[in-house]
Simulated scan of single mutants.
Amino acid sequence: MVISGIVPDVTPVHLVVIAIASVAVWIGSAWLETSAEDLSAYYGLPPVVQGSVVVAVGSSFPEFASVVIAAFAGAFDLGVGAIVGSALFNVLVIPALSGLSTEGEELDANRAIVYKEAQFYMIAVSALIITFALAVIYEPVESADALSGEITRPLAVIPLLLYGLYLFIQWQDVGDHTPGDEGEGVDVLPAWGKLAAGLLVILVAVEFLVGSVEFLGAALGVPEFLAGVTILAAATSLPDTLVSVRSASGGNGTTSLGNVLGSNTFDLLVAIPVGVVLVGSLTINFAVALPLFGVLTLATVLLFTFLRTDLTLYRWESYLLLLAYAVFVAWMVTESIGATDLLKAA
Score class of each variant (00 low, 15 high):
residue 5 G to Y: 10
residue 10 V to D: 03
residue 14 H to V: 06
residue 17 V to F: 00
residue 21 A to T: 03
residue 26 W to Q: 13
residue 28 G to T: 04
residue 31 W to E: 13
residue 33 E to I: 15
residue 34 T to K: 15
residue 37 E to C: 10
residue 37 E to W: 10
residue 41 A to E: 10
residue 51 G to H: 05
residue 53 V to I: 05
residue 53 V to P: 03
residue 67 V to T: 08
residue 70 A to V: 06
residue 81 G to N: 06
residue 94 I to D: 11
residue 102 T to I: 00
residue 110 N to S: 04
residue 126 S to P: 09
residue 139 E to P: 06
residue 142 E to P: 03
residue 150 E to M: 14
residue 170 Q to T: 03
residue 171 W to R: 14
residue 172 Q to S: 15
residue 175 G to F: 15
residue 176 D to E: 13
residue 176 D to P: 05
residue 178 T to V: 14
residue 181 D to H: 01
residue 182 E to P: 14
residue 186 V to S: 10
residue 195 L to V: 08
residue 197 A to I: 13
residue 204 V to R: 02
residue 207 E to G: 12
residue 207 E to T: 14
residue 208 F to W: 05
residue 211 G to H: 06
residue 231 I to S: 00
residue 234 A to G: 10
residue 235 A to E: 00
residue 238 L to P: 00
residue 242 L to K: 12
residue 249 S to A: 13
residue 256 S to W: 08
residue 259 N to Q: 04
residue 261 L to M: 14
residue 266 F to N: 01
residue 269 L to I: 00
residue 269 L to T: 05
residue 271 A to L: 03
residue 276 V to E: 01
residue 280 G to V: 01
residue 280 G to S: 06
residue 298 L to C: 12
residue 307 L to A: 08
residue 312 T to G: 13
residue 318 S to D: 04
residue 321 L to C: 11
residue 324 A to E: 05
residue 325 Y to P: 09
residue 338 G to I: 14
residue 343 L to K: 13
residue 343 L to T: 06
